[in-house]
Design a protein around this nucleic acid. Structure first.
Lengths: 334, 334
DNA sequence: TCGTATCATGAAAGCGCTTTCATGCCAAGC
DNA sequence: GCTTGGCATGAAAGCGCTTTCATGATACGA
């Protein structure tokens, strides 16, 4: 990378050992006397030896690179994606892996396929939001280790890590009931998206548990954008709801803003709960929201990918998400 | 990457040519008969040949990887960072480069240094927000191509691409004047940050141009978070301002929310302008903001990095930013 | 007609590292 | 005292590609 890189051979020469020994010493492989190892390491440090990743990759077959696949629009417009990528990046770094960012910017799928193939990463962490589902499966079938973050569609048979949306959504809905809400709407995403589906199912289940009837007209479908939240306001008012469970913070924020604009008191007249626990929830009125355990998800995903690399076959993991009560749901007892 | 990768040698064998010729054919190098090139390419396609990046890197010294350095907190909490990374990622992909994400997660600087060194990228695109300034300079001095996005501190002598904050800030301030504001505050970031400084300077310059006195107490220093915006509200009210120019959308949003919470009309009593043009500006009340040309910045940064790789010494570039008028500044004529 | 410049092609030398495999050394066991 | 096993070490063979360099073929001009 720099102009005159020090190589393993240099290091070995300076230490008066063979490059094989130097390699073993650096990498903590057995078969080196402790004092030799120590010396090699010290010299490496002092002459600024940095192993060449590509050479390592070529020789060992391991690139120590993890590919991260997200929809491009997601990164730019959805704080969830940003938080998730950040978490994965940190976790990967901690595990000694570099992070190769693959943004699906509407490129033709075959190009994406080729891109991912030649990226040279050891494996892929793919967002359930990513569009290239079938290509991912094909890659996985071709032997590329893949782990999903978020809940992928059920026909994808690959390990994933996700937060427990179903019960979190139950909890969120119950929370509104506890606040005295009687007519709660569900502002969800496209129901063919498993995460949206889970949250919707939780909403329904909460009603069942509470013995409340559920009216299908109370389900409003959005597209996870703030604009969708704003757009839903009219419908929500028409429905006469006193509570809204949104499928993400962006839509929740849109709803709150739209309501406030119209002079509707939040949470006084209508209480709102979001989902994700991103930065977008954190300014006033602070959203009540379900906080995803981003760091934990990132860490588990990386760990699972490494497990696959090591020949194991880890199962999917579902992590608990936590309801964080903010300003938009707690109303004076009515 | 997959289990039994096809190599250049395979391809060459199938085509009945040497691997040298195959390589030349694939890479569009001269010295191959058109029909041979065509055949090699067709066969490559059909047998699914994908060149091994690491091998290419090792042999040619070019990794086709760009390292992108951002503060980790930035990605998670600042839509600006997400948008910028997205733009860079797209631009890099378009130019045939992969994107290696380096998040400064508070790791000790030497580790960052080593990390960047051994990442094996051809060069670095560094956010002006990144903390590792001196390490970056050291890397650059060691021969690593570096381009900054955003305005780096003046003592960093490396090429950068940024949006023109100074005149954009003038424009934003003038806009408030045009809306009838008489007492405009500047909610800025730490003034040792060049981008904050630029925006502050523009604020001052706008006053000079308008022949208005500028009161230092009208400058409120925040830290680019929504919380800072909220926290500034009290001060702003005390100052009796009727307009606020914030240094980013997050703070502007915080201010607006804080004001609305207190029942202050926006823009009726106090008009607010943000900066960045991120997704956080786009829900009601839609922020009037200065939109950064993210994609253009990303593209120029990548182009400049490639220029450096090609031995050129590109100069810094300053791109125009555009004021986008939303709901938070346009008031009925008073 | 022959010499020479031109060009497509292949052989082979690495790029910097990991990893057998063989070697030489020593301590333990007979 | 001599064999055997274990262990630290080095030599060397690649990993898959790019890139001189040499070669043979072709076409050109004289």
């Amino acid at each position: 990378m720099t102009d005159r890189p020090t190589t393993l051979a240099d290091l070995a020469r300076v230490c008066g050992v063979s490059s094989a020994t130097a390699s073993r010493a650096i990498n903590g492989k057995p078969g080196v006397r402790p004092e030799v190892r120590e010396r090699v390491r010290r010299v490496a440090e002092s002459i600024g030896f940095v192993p060449n990743r590509s050479a390592q990759h070529l020789a060992s077959g391991r690139s120590s690179l993890i590919g991260v696949v997200f929809p491009s629009d997601g990164l730019r417009s959805d704080p969830y994606a940003a938080a998730m990528i950040d978490a994965i990046g940190r976790a990967a770094a901690k595990a000694g892996f570099g992070t190769l960012l693959h943004l699906e910017a509407g490129a033709p799928p075959e190009q994406v396929f080729a891109m991912l193939q030649r990226s040279g990463s050891d494996g892929l962490i793919v967002s359930a939001l990513a569009a290239s589902a079938m290509w991912i499966s094909e890659l996985a079938a071709a032997g590329v280790p893949v782990v999903y973050v978020g809940r992928p569609s059920p026909d994808v048979d690959l390990p994933f890590v996700t937060a427990e949306s179903f019960s979190a959504s139950i909890r969120a809905t119950e929370h509104l009931f506890e606040q005295g809400c009687r007519t709660v709407a569900c502002l969800t995403g496209p129901l063919d998206r498993p995460d949206a589906r889970d949250r919707y199912d939780g909403f329904v289940e909460a009603h069942r548990l509470a013995g409340l009837p559920i009216d299908d007209s109370l389900v409003v479908v959005g597209d996870f954008t703030a604009a969708a939240g704003v757009a839903a306001v009219e419908e929500l008012l028409r429905l006469g709801v006193d509570g809204v469970v949104a499928a993400n913070d962006l839509m929740a924020r849109g709803v709150v803003s739209g309501l406030v604009q119209r002079g509707v008191a939040v949470p006084g007249e209508i209480a709102v709960v979001g989902y994700d626990g991103t930065v977008g929830a954190e300014f006033p009125p602070v959203l009540t929201t379900v906080r995803q355990p981003f760091d934990a998800i990132g860490e588990r995903a990386v760990a699972m990918l490494i497990a696959i690399l090591d020949g194991e076959a880890p199962g999917s993991e579902v992590l608990a998400a936590e309801l964080v009560v903010g300003d938009t749901s707690v109303r004076a007892r009515r």
